[in-house]
Each structure stands twice: as C-alpha cells, then as structure tokens.
Nucleic acid binder design. Sequence first.
DNA 1: TATTAGTTGACAATACATTGTCAAATTGAC
DNA 2: GTCAATTTGACAATGTATTGTCAACTAATA
Lengths: 155, 155
Amino acid sequence: MKKTSEATALTSLILEVFRLNGQLLSQGNRLTEPLGLTSARWQVLGSIKLAGHPISVAQAARRMGLTRQAVQRVANDLETLGFTRFENNPDHARAKLIVPTAKGRDALELIEKRQIEWSNKLAKGINTSLINNAVELFGELHDRCNKMETTPIEA
Amino acid sequence: MKKTSEATALTSLILEVFRLNGQLLSQGNRLTEPLGLTSARWQVLGSIKLAGHPISVAQAARRMGLTRQAVQRVANDLETLGFTRFENNPDHARAKLIVPTAKGRDALELIEKRQIEWSNKLAKGINTSLINNAVELFGELHDRCNKMETTPIEA
DNA sequence: TATTAGTTGACAATACATTGTCAAATTGAC
DNA sequence: GTCAATTTGACAATGTATTGTCAACTAATA
C-alpha cells in the first residue's frame, strides 16, 4: 500500500506535534516554576476555572483528554501544596470536588497575566485564521483518532 | 494587558496540541506494542533510518527536538531488547553509533506498513494543503519558541 | 428490592521526559 | 603543544502519563 499525499503531510504534522508539545511544556514549566507550579498543575488549575465551578477529578480529566489517574496524581499534588482543597460533593460520595484556594487563585491569575504577554509575543504577526484553521483541523483529527481507538490493529 | 486575537487563537491551539499529543502517543503505543516497541522507541529507530546512516544519541536527540538524556535512555532500551546495537565511531570515542539490527529493521518495516494504513485512514478526505499549512505554522512556532527560550521571565 | 453495569478514587507497575551534574573526549584558539 | 570551551555519555532526582486492577459508590433495570 502506498501513502496518500494527505497521509504524508499528516505524518509530518505528527512529528511537529511531538516537537512542539515538548517545547510548550518546557516553556510552561519555566513560566510557572517561580510560583511552585508546573505545566500539568497549571493545566488542572486552569480547567477548574474554565469550567466555571468546582469539578471532580474525572470530569477534569475528560475535559483535558487525559486519564483520570494522571489528573488524580496532579490534583493530589495541588492539594498538598495548598493550591486547591477537596470539598465534599453532595451528588457523589466518592467524587470530591477540586476547589482552588486563595493561594491557587492568586497563582493562576499571575500566571495568566504572564501567559498573555508570552502568547502575544509568540503569536505576533501570525494570521489569526491560519491558526484557527489549525485548531479546527486538530479538532477533526481528535475526533477521528477517537474513532480509530475502537478499531484494533488486526494481526 | 489584553490578549490579541492571534494569541487567543494560539492558546486554543496549544491546548489542542496537548490533547492530540497524548492521543498520538497512545495510538503509537497500540500500533507498536505487539512487536515490543513503543512510540518513543519507534521514533528513535525511525530517526536512524531517516538519517540514512548510523548516528549518535546526541545527533538523534537534536533531530527529534528532545534532550540527549531522554534519547539515551530509549536507545539503551533498544539495545537491551536487541533492536539496535552500538558501534564504535571512528570519529568520536565516546559518541557510539546506533545501528539497527536485523530484528530492528524488520520491526520498523512492519510498523511502517501499518502506519501507512493508519495514516491513510486518518487523513482520508482532509485537504492536503490544510495540513501543510499547519506543518508550516508549527515550524514557525518552533523557531519562535527557541528564540523565547533565551529571554527569561523577569520577576 | 435486587442485580447488574458503569463510574470513581486508590494503588501499582511501567514508560517517558526534564533539569542538573560530573568526567571523559573533542575542538578550536593561541 | 597547551589550555579553555564545548560536546557527549552516565547518573540522579523529579515530574508526567499510561495501562491495569480493585473496591466503593452510583445509576439503571427488572
């Protein structure tokens, strides 16, 4: 079987995703490190704020596209470090809610300010619709990947 | 400071990169697992083939945008598992060359066949130039990120 | 109500990647 | 040739994420 032109382009894109992912994590760590945070901790903290209300670990994991185990570990770290606390969930005895503390909210706010400067600088002069096309493409690939998950490789 | 429209779009893209990165790694693991490989091992093995000749760990790391330590670990695993061996480098006493064994070449060939099917399926019907635009955008972001590295966050 | 299926947190094993540091090897300037 | 700067592999510490499994909880259904 031969690779289609789309597939060839896609393979290049995938390699770029790996490279950029590493770079972005590194940048995020640099950005958040002075506050005792990391890229992963920041992302979890941000997902709570983005949700608009406290959510459980499993809910946060689904929003971020990670396993709940990965998020659980980070959420526990955040609690230990005092950025969040767990609050009883009236609707579910096991699934406690992640609630940012004042320390967590302050840290997030400061980081978001810095992230604005950083992203403005990084994005300066790039065509917005070019970026949005990529976002859309990624959403499509995301959905398609999900569908592939269910189709195991036949030996 | 306010976030520009490009920066807002870029932030969305970054979150998509994180999501897709995880999904792709997962797919790669699934694809390579029956052969005793993983996404990372596959990538290192592939980078040797892509180079066209045996290269050192540090060279492979630069090509992939990873630290040499990360690649070293994976390269050692590959050797232990018999997919590669280290060969003396006439030009450098320390920097041995990673050389795929027959087992390694066979495994890579089989995976590449499966990857063709997989990527053809995933990319089917997507506009090639849309993908290529994204690749180009990522290259640009990659370069810009590198320049940001040198500019530390001022406290 | 009872049973069953799905969700959730906890725990463990494994893999992946970063930063930092050290010593050996290489390279380049002098 | 000598010495300093760089490169490279080795080792350690830390953080991130996956899969798998189990028990507790929840929800749906008969």
